[in-house]
């Protein structure tokens, strides 16, 4: 059984990391990062089977692809705290000569990252390719991917969604961060996308919903169910309902912090709401 308190502590520390990283360089995307903190912590510490050391091919382990690369702060924090690279390196986020680029990349050789992302809509295709390679290699491990809900406005997703169902990519669990926000406002105002669950189902996916996407136990339960749905001839979609900016009260329920860093005072308020648990980097 996972120790929920440990995961809670890690999540709180990850939130601190996110706030401090974007504050230091006065740039980056805290809102979506905070909203997905519980998901990343669960994925990298409980859900995925990963090997001790990182190699690009990742044979014999589960793989993760982040499609909405702008939430790199949460990705970097969770990778560092899962020992993919030194936690101190979080200090270099978005600085010149850093492996922690504004959006994730393989170009600088950062362990844990297998594809560049940031230009939206490309990650599901890449995840499908990795899933096909797993099948060819007779490797029974799974591919996980994460996508923004606003990101689904990119047409390439629907090519990929059609392909994954049509070609029975059933070793893939694609999670959609359903926070209802994008840079210009609520997704319903920017471009109403209708019922995303029905759309995935119409394309032939198995769809599961995690109503409390910021609740660790709900995520662990939901993702275990998703895992149980793999290998049945259909790709699996998880609709993860999250709150953008979760854990920092003034950042929650708004698109305002999608791509904006807190100032000194705001940082202090945010940190006060998230006590240091594992030690700041």
């Amino acid at each position: 059984m996972p120790n929920i308190q440990q995961l809670e502590d890690l999540t709180t520390q990850v939130r601190r990391d996110i706030l401090r990283m974007v504050h230091k360089v006065n740039s980056g995307h805290p809102g979506g990062s905070l909203g997905c903190a519980e998901f990343f912590v669960s994925l990298f510490n409980e859900i995925m089977e990963t090997k001790e050391s990182f190699d690009m091919d990742g044979i014999g382990e589960d793989l993760f692809f982040l499609s909405n690369g702008h939430i790199s702060p949460v990705y970097y924090s969770v990778l560092a705290r899962a020992n993919y690279f030194p936690v101190d390196e979080l200090n270099t986020f978005r600085l010149v000569n850093s492996r922690l680029q504004g959006h994730p990349t393989t170009h600088e050789g950062l362990p844990g990252v297998r594809i560049a992302s940031g230009s939206l809509g490309q990650g599901m295709s890449v995840a499908i390719g990795a899933a096909e390679a797993k099948k060819l290699n007779k490797d029974n491990h799974l591919i996980y991917s994460l996508h923004g809900d606003g990101e689904l406005q990119e047409g390439q997703n629907w090519e990929a969604i059609m392909y994954a169902a049509g070609k029975k990519i059933d070793n893939l669990i694609s999670t959609i961060d359903l926070n209802g926000q994008q840079i210009d406002g609520a997704t319903d105002d920017v471009l109403p996308m209708g019922n995303i669950k029905e759309k995935f189902e119409a394309f032939g996916w198995t769809v599961l919903e995690i109503e409390e996407g910021n609740n660790l136990e709900a995520i662990l339960y939901g993702m275990a169910k998703a895992k149980a749905e793999t290998g049945k001839g259909k790709p699996v979609c998880v609709l993860l309902k999250t709150i953008m900016g979760n854990g920092v009260d003034f950042m929650m329920h708004t698109h305002a912090w999608h791509g904006k860093a807190p100032n000194d005072e705001q940082l202090e308020i945010g940190l006060a709401q998230n006590a240091e648990t594992l030690g700041d980097y």
Binding site: I115, S125, V126, G129, D139, Q156, M162, Y163, G166
Partner: peptide, 20 residues
Amino acid sequence: IGIAEANMIGIAAGMTIGGK
């Protein structure tokens, strides 16, 4: 892949992960 070139390029990139 079908008539979906963007998806084809992405899938190809993903398939290299695993040595293809």
